[in-house]
Simulated assay, not measured.
Amino acid sequence: MDFDTKIAVLLRDDLLPWQRLNVTAFLVSGIAAALPELIGGPYADADGTPYLPMFRQPVLVLEGSKETMTAAHGRILGRDLPRAVFTADLFATGNDDDNRAAVRAVPRDRLDIVGLAVHGPRNVVDRVLKGARMHP
């Protein structure tokens, strides 16, 4: 099925495997929280065991260099797209308050971004993530 919109995560290519998974999980939670219309209905198995709802559409995971990340960040901001950010500083924090304080402490052009999530029209998301490649 083709979707008019795209959910994409861009990870910096120098992250460790556990960091990639952790950053992806955090970033998509931001998209889900801000855009509840992207969430489908709850699941249940044949025995009636309930499971939580998930996104209605796939989430593409891409990777790129620090330079690709910086360029994508600028293009995302220029298009005012719904976005989530994860900076390297967040690996050293232990709670939500400290996470937000760590991002707030750094000017936008000096953020050490290791992950971005974005949602928008397919062609726009493709353009803002230009230079990124599919995560292996």
Rank of each mutant, 00 (worst) to 15 (best):
D2E: 13
A8Q: 08
V9L: 08
L10T: 09
L11C: 05
L11I: 10
L11P: 07
R12D: 01
R12E: 05
D14R: 04
T24V: 09
F26V: 15
S29D: 12
S29C: 06
S29K: 12
I31Q: 01
A33L: 11
A34V: 07
L35A: 07
E37A: 11
I39K: 10
G40Q: 14
G40S: 09
G41N: 12
G41F: 10
P42V: 09
Y43C: 04
G48K: 07
T49K: 12
T49M: 14
Y51G: 05
Y51S: 12
L52I: 08
F55S: 06
F55G: 03
V61E: 06
E63K: 13
E67F: 02
E67R: 11
E67S: 10
E67I: 06
T68R: 07
M69K: 07
A72L: 04
H73L: 11
G74N: 08
R79C: 13
R79Q: 15
D80C: 05
D80Q: 14
L81M: 01
R83K: 14
A84M: 09
A88N: 06
L90F: 06
L90D: 06
A92I: 01
T93K: 15
T93I: 15
T93A: 07
G94L: 10
N95E: 13
N95F: 04
D97G: 09
D98T: 13
N99F: 03
A101L: 14
R108H: 10
R108L: 13
L111C: 08
D112N: 14
D112K: 12
I113Y: 02
L116E: 10
L116Q: 05
L116W: 09
A117E: 01
G120N: 08
P121A: 12
P121G: 12
N123Y: 06
N123C: 01
D126N: 13
D126A: 10
R127Y: 06
R127H: 12
V128N: 05
L129C: 11
L129K: 04
L129E: 04
G131S: 09
R133P: 05
R133K: 15
P136K: 06
P136F: 09
P136S: 10
